[in-house]
Design a protein around this nucleic acid. Structure first.
Length: 282
DNA sequence: AGTGCGACCCGAACGC
DNA sequence: TGCGTTCGGGTCGCAC
């Protein structure tokens, strides 16, 4: 039941989002939507009234994913949902008290709710017509995912050849590789032994190969952890974030490199905290 | 076109 | 203790 193929031949990854996708796919499909509450409408890209109108009396037919975007399939529309960093979905009884950080509440006819919870209010949702999916910028722009067969050293080398910015910045660019965030990029560069400040165009083919392999290793481990947290999904869930204990550099400023003992450095690249080992990453 | 940076949020961590 | 300030995370939109 977890082997659904979605939008091409991607392997499951992007642990957090993929975990949510799989779990919800087992929990909310084909239930009639009988109520929608919008408690914070700035997270919607649609007019609130349109958003509600489309959802009411509709049902979720499937849940897909492209990059970090969740795609809830409705009868004639898709609901796109981005969790950013702290968005979570909970399944609760419709009678349960609404908590402070629940912003969108979708009620089903079996007295359960799908509730979107986001302490930072950073997540976004958007309903589009089905025919527009691949023309929607959020989806159209996504590059290849680390497990895609299309993501080859040659592809990366080509994308990198004219880039003047640091490699760290390019790995965060979802249009080149889809699915790596700030934490994973630090880990991938550490594993690949590449200095995050390196000018992107200086990355050679061997290094591209190390980046791709590194991304696969990091994400495989992360989804494995996502897989273990899946078990903790009960009537109301939360999930996310068992991977922290495996981090080799991120958030380890001032601590010793596990490989060489050098002190892990923290700098800013493109406004983002970046952790790395000066000695191991050339 | 490519690149950089501020804005969006608010809880946690920090400084005084 | 309690206050104010800073930070971070992904993406968009704007300025250069």
């Amino acid at each position: 039941m977890y082997d659904k193929i979605y939008l091409g031949d991607n392997m499951p990854e992007l642990a957090e989002v993929e975990t949510v996708r799989r779990t919800l796919n087992n929990r909310i499909l084909h239930k009639k939507i009988v109520g929608v509450k919008v408690l914070y409408n700035k997270m919607l890209d649609n007019e609130e009234e349109y958003f509600k109108k489309i959802l009411i009396n509709n049902e979720f037919i499937d849940i897909l994913r492209v990059g970090k975007w969740l795609i809830f399939e409705l009868k004639e529309h898709y609901l796109l949902s981005h969790l950013r960093m702290e968005g979570k979905y909970f399944i609760k009884n419709s009678l349960d008290e609404i908590s402070k950080h629940e912003h969108i509440i979708i009620s089903f006819d079996d007295n359960t709710d799908l509730r979107y919870h986001d302490t930072r209010k950073f997540g976004r949702m958007k309903i589009i017509e089905k025919k527009d999916l691949y023309e929607t910028p959020e989806i159209k722009k996504q590059g290849y995912e680390p497990f895609s067969k299309e993501l080859t050293p040659s592809y990366l080398l080509d994308k990198f050849k004219n880039k003047k910015n640091p490699i760290k910045t390019c790995l965060l660019d979802q249009e080149i590789i889809s699915g790596l965030g700030n934490i994973y990029v630090d880990e991938v560069l550490y594993l690949s032994k590449i200095n995050p400040l390196r000018k992107t165009s200086s990355i050679n083919k061997k290094e591209c190969e190390r980046i791709i392999n590194g991304a696969k290793i990091i994400l495989e481990k992360a989804i494995e952890e996502g897989g273990t947290t899946i078990k903790s999904y009960t009537s109301s869930l939360g999930v996310i974030g068992n991977y922290q204990k495996y981090l080799k550099v991120h958030k380890r400023e001032g601590e010793k490199c596990y490989n060489c003992g050098e002190i892990i450095k923290r700098i800013k690249i493109g406004g983002r905290s970046t952790y790395y080992c000066e000695k191991c990453q050339k």
